[in-house]
Design a protein around this nucleic acid. Structure first.
Lengths: 139, 139
DNA sequence: ATAGCTGCAAATGCTTTGCAAGGCC
DNA sequence: GGCCTTGCAAAGCATTTGCAGCTAT
């Protein structure tokens, strides 16, 4: 499951999303999309950008994560009320949440057998179905 | 779906959980459990307790919500990274989340057809499966 | 040139904590 | 009386915002 998009496409994707391809955004986009599926928090992305020698402020990390999410390049995963996670996999899928470590992993789609397209309340349309399988280590 | 527990049982349940039945805890327990299933935030419970003329501080509301959760009287629902919701229904069930209003509702159990008992990663045991059906109003 | 970004620091909002005073057993 | 609870205010954290300076086009 490797990301096949050539690096230069990032520029185009940003433009298409109405976002100027600035140095920071390009650098962050590469950190996010050039290494397979990732589940990042603002903090973890900030740390990785520091290690990579990219000059970005934490405020810009937050802005960028939200802009990318609005543009459909990222998806926000809510598993924990103290931290926001952003998933580089925007396909329809679900998550394991490791309570002990706070880590997240995609659930291979074929492992979820069938979810009912349930009847919804009147005048409501489906935004998304999130399934979180919470796991803990065997003590 | 009415709560059939006599009010006086609350005292026993608190004792059983190792919690002293103090005035605040008894009053909050009644607000929570005497009126059917509820989805409360710390703030909403605080507001309701003020209206009911109960003297409690917000800090105690937070403490109490967590103690009740640890005791299995409440269940925490994570739908939104900015607020914690507590559900008085601790049975196995799932939720609708109304994105427009921030409200939560239980999904009647028969509306979810079948969730696979998927293979789990090695050395991990299931803590819980959370399903959140996010809805928004038809514009 | 100029509209859009970025960075910093301050502000925000929810939640937790420290500690003195109060209440249950 | 002794230990658990409570309340208040202060602290903590993740996140957002205001604004001056910078940058892509």
């Amino acid at each position: 499951m490797v990301d096949l998009r050539p690096t230069s496409d990032v520029t185009q994707e940003l433009r298409a999303a109405g976002l100027r391809p600035t140095r920071q955004r390009l650098a962050l986009a590469r950190l996010l999309f050039d290494h397979g599926n990732r589940h990042e928090t603002a903090e973890s992305l900030y740390d990785r950008s520091q290690e990579a020698g990219i000059k970005v402020s934490l405020a810009t990390i937050y802005n960028t994560l939200h802009q990318f999410t609005a543009a459909g390049l990222l998806r926000q995963v809510v598993v924990n009320s103290t931290r926001s996670y952003f998933d580089t996999n925007v396909e329809d899928h679900h998550h394991f949440y490791f309570e002990d470590t706070g880590e997240i992993a995609d659930i291979p789609n074929d492992r979820i057998n069938s979810i009912a397209p349930t009847d919804l309340p009147a005048d409501m349309e489906l935004s998304r179905v999130d399934i979180i399988v919470r796991l803990r280590g065997t003590r």
